[in-house]
Structure formats: C-alpha cells, structure tokens
Amino acid sequence: MKNLKGKVALVTGATRGIGKGIAIGLGEAGATVYITGRTLEPSDENISGTLLETQQAVIDAGGVCIPVQVDHSDDEQVRLLFERIETEQKGQLDILVNNVFSGVKEIGNAFGQPFWKHDPSLWDAINNVGLRSHYIASVYAARLMNKRQQGLICTISSWGGLSYIFGAAYGVGKAACDRLASDMAVELKPDNITSVSLWPGIVGTEEMFRFSEKWKTEDEKEPQNSTMRDYYNWETPLFTGRVIAALADQQNTMNLTGKVQIIAELAQRYNIVDENGNRPVSLRSLRFIVPSAIPALKKYPWLIPDLKIPWFVLQWTMLQSPKI
C-alpha cells in the first residue's frame, strides 16, 4: 500500500546495509526518497554498494528514488543537499533518517582490542560521520520541517548504547545518539516535529555477516556466538525500513517522541513483517533471551512467551554482565 505517497524522505548513508533497506521500505510505501552516500556507481575498486544500485532497488519496489552523492564529513556538501531538496520539493521534507556511518572498517580493524591500544583517531572515525553527521543533518532538516510545522526525524542507534558491543568509542557514540534524539525532541516538540532513536536488532547486513565470521572464532560456549552461528532471530535491513514507513504513516507520533524505540516492538505494534514473512522479536524478549542461552530451544520458540524484560531490569543486568 502506498501510504506515504506525496511524502518526501531523506535517508543518509543508503548505499548498502540498513540504509538501503530503509530506502526500499520507504519507497515501497510510496514516498519520494532522497538517498546519500559517497559512491554513486560501481567501479573497478569493487566497493560494496552504490547509490545507483540502491536507486534501482527502490524503483524495483515501486518507489521513486533520487540519489545524491554526498560526503557527510563535509558540512558544505550537506548544506547543499538540503538546499537542493528545498528547491526541488518546494520546501517539503517529511522524514529524515539519520543512518550514515563510516566507522565499520575501523571497528573491524579494532575488533577484540581495548581502546587504548589504538590511535585516538579511532574516536573520530566512528563518531564523526555518525553522531556528528546526525546532528548536522538534523539542523538542516528541522529548518525545513519547522516551516510546515510537521516532520519525523529518526536516528538509527543500537543496543550498543546500553551494553558493550564494539568498543568504548562505539558505545559512547550510540548512547549519545539516543541522547541527541531525546534532547532534540524537547526543542522540536513545539513545532510538531517528532524525534526518535531507533534500535534495530541483529541485522543481516553485509558487514554483520562478516562480523559473524569473526565471532565464530571466539569461545564456542558463549551464547552470543551461538546466535551468530545460526543467525537466530536476525532481521533484514528491509524490516527497519518497513517499520519506519509504518511509523511515518501514523497520524500522531508525539507520544513516542524523545524515546528509544525498538524496531521489533514497533513492528509488533503496527503488524509489520519482515521480507520473508516472519516477525523477529525484540532482543529483550524472553523468546530471544532464553533460546540464546539454551540453543536447543531455538527450534521451538513458540513455547516461550514473548514477554519483554523491563528496562530497569535490563539495564541492571547489562551493568553486571556488559558483554553480549
């Protein structure tokens, strides 16, 4: 259903992974989707993912997609991007998805080593085109949305804001993304602009499959390694896109603004399924936690109730055992 027909969206960092899935999800819902990335078309350098490939995928899903080559470390390029959207769409921007992130390679290189064994530039590699870029894009998006007194800003964060996953710089950056979304919500609420932080689950992106191979070499007795081996409860990138499309279709999202929203839980609320027809559960659901600890139960997930661990319990548990 083309519920977002007539809406204009921008997805930053959409050449591959979650960004590409979000663009497809918004496109299949009828939105006009602007996408950004550094790589426009395939080259001999064998770079994984390009804007033109994402554009074609959105078109194949029945959507309209406008690729714009942007390096989000350059503020002027970002300013010109929003100037273009304002001109071409007569000032309309309904949805911004802050997704761009350039620290994947650095995270992979630093994997398994403490932060102090790496150059301090690791912080910038992870949080410049990431946390800072989300702030810059939100500034320009809010200026457009303010004129029409409506809009939705989604900042893609992760469970790394709550528990240790990929190192200190990554965790602090994701916690800051959550706080950014929360504090922006306070200042945007008078203008009827919603700001949320979104936590996907374990998403089967190209890079996540590579990370799973690394985890397989770790202690096989660790529950998380079992989860990585058999891809239990993994989500596709499109799942996040479909959930954001459903969120953008709601008449009033102010009751959600400023809060962390878990993709799987929003999917349950809006009756959204993944591209293979299933619906992954939240990572704080007993249906995920128990089978992850007792792998034999993964064949019978329906026997375990889909009950969510309360936030305060989850936070206490993560503090006691920070590695997941």
Results as ranks from 00 to 15, higher is better:
248 A>D: 01
178 D>L: 00
18 I>D: 00
159 W>G: 14
136 I>H: 05
117 K>C: 09
26 L>G: 07
168 A>T: 15
119 D>I: 08
103 G>E: 03
79 R>G: 10
179 R>E: 02
311 W>M: 12
6 G>S: 01
320 Q>C: 07
84 R>E: 11
157 S>I: 07
138 S>L: 07
99 N>C: 11
172 V>M: 12
185 A>Q: 01
84 R>F: 02
127 N>A: 07
113 Q>P: 01
6 G>I: 02
64 V>E: 12
63 G>E: 02
132 R>P: 02
140 Y>S: 03
192 N>Y: 11
72 H>K: 03
297 L>V: 09
99 N>D: 11
16 R>G: 00
267 A>V: 09
237 P>T: 10
152 L>A: 05
115 F>K: 00
281 V>Q: 11
185 A>L: 00
240 T>Y: 04
321 S>C: 07
68 V>K: 15
11 V>K: 06
316 W>E: 09
71 D>K: 15
86 E>V: 05
139 V>I: 05
78 V>W: 08
247 L>N: 09
48 S>M: 12
108 G>S: 05
123 W>Y: 11
165 I>D: 00
150 Q>R: 15
112 G>K: 05
263 I>S: 13
181 A>T: 08
145 M>I: 06
15 T>V: 06
238 L>D: 05
103 G>W: 03
307 L>W: 14
210 R>I: 07
223 P>H: 12
61 A>N: 08
174 K>D: 00
117 K>G: 08
106 E>S: 13
297 L>A: 09
80 L>F: 12
34 Y>Q: 10
67 P>T: 10
183 D>A: 08
167 G>K: 07
290 V>F: 03
93 L>A: 08
285 S>G: 09
210 R>S: 10
49 G>Y: 11
150 Q>H: 15
48 S>L: 11
255 N>E: 12
156 I>L: 14
159 W>S: 08
116 W>G: 00
23 A>P: 09
181 A>Y: 07
276 N>F: 07
88 E>S: 12
148 R>V: 13
140 Y>H: 15
238 L>G: 03
218 E>H: 06
198 L>Q: 05
269 R>D: 02
222 E>L: 15
